[in-house]
């Protein structure tokens, strides 16, 4: 999967590139509007991560250009402006998602996965991790073909975990993913822990090994490695 990352802040560009490459993507970068347009003309990408504010133009214009010809490319906007107008305009132009800075890399990763899933496995997207398989369309989860009843939050948590498997997920990244803007209410740590505990229990009951590892002081990891 090839990703074009368009961002004018070099440090952020490098961090995101590094993180996504570890996920196994081929990542190209562009830090100006012009650079991005040239790269888009020369190569094909599966997903575009684009910052709205660029020194020589607007990320929104890149999306406009792109939508003129190619259609089957996932687009995620990242912006420092939490502006409803920008968000609506971006989504109207055909972007798949909108992420406000600062964001957790794990969140960006999960969103990219979700976009790619929707774009490339149309009709039959399926998330598979060992014996766990998830049908995102109906939000159904199976362990060894046996259905698991999860609450909405537990389901979201599981998908987030699998999207970021083998990564350390901080509590705040999990809280923000599950509760978004109201995450400031999730200030007590045992609140997130309760949800994780329940998910863990339900998976183990169906015969899964305990994939959720607690990394003290850092967060949680979902991994098949012991």
């Amino acid at each position: 999967m090839k990703i074009l990352l368009i961002e004018d802040e070099p440090s952020l560009l490098l961090s995101v590139k590094h993180y996504l490459e570890e996920e196994g993507y081929i990542v190209s970068t562009a830090n100006t509007f012009q650079d991005a347009i040239e790269k888009l003309n020369d190569y094909d990408y599966d997903c575009l991560v684009v910052d709205i504010t660029l020194p020589d133009g607007s990320g929104l214009d890149i999306i406009k250009e792109l939508k003129k010809e190619k259609t089957n490319v996932g687009i995620i906007i990242i912006s420092a402006k939490n502006s409803l107008d920008d968000r609506l305009m971006g989504l109207d132009l055909g972007a798949d998602d909108y992420l406000t800075k600062p964001f957790h890399l794990s969140e960006l990763n999960a969103r990219i996965k979700s976009v790619l899933r929707r774009r490339f496995f149309e009709g039959n997207p399926k998330i598979i991790f060992q014996e766990i398989s998830i049908l995102p369309e109906n939000q159904e989860v199976f362990v060894n073909a046996e259905s698991v009843e999860l609450t909405r939050k537990e389901y979201e948590l599981l998908v987030f975990f699998i999207s970021n498997k083998n990564r350390i997920l901080s509590k705040s990244a999990i809280a923000e993913h599950l509760w978004g803007d109201s995450m400031d209410l999730a200030d007590s740590h045992d609140f997130i822990y309760t949800h994780i505990k329940n998910l863990r229990r339900k998976l183990i009951e169906k015969g899964c090994p305990d994939y959720v590892k607690t990394r003290y002081g850092a967060g949680y990891t979902f991994s098949e490695k012991p």
Binding site: E9, S11, Y19, A80, K101, P102, R167, S170, G217, A218
Partner: peptide, 27 residues
């Protein structure tokens, strides 16, 4: 202001994710 915060946040997340980071430092 949000941009440098985003940079620091991303850097810290990568640091936290690095293998063999001792618990104390992770904290």
């Amino acid at each position: 202001i949000q941009t440098p915060i985003a940079v620091i946040s991303a850097e810290l997340e990568i640091l936290l994710d690095s293998e063999n980071l001792p618990e104390k430092e992770a904290n």
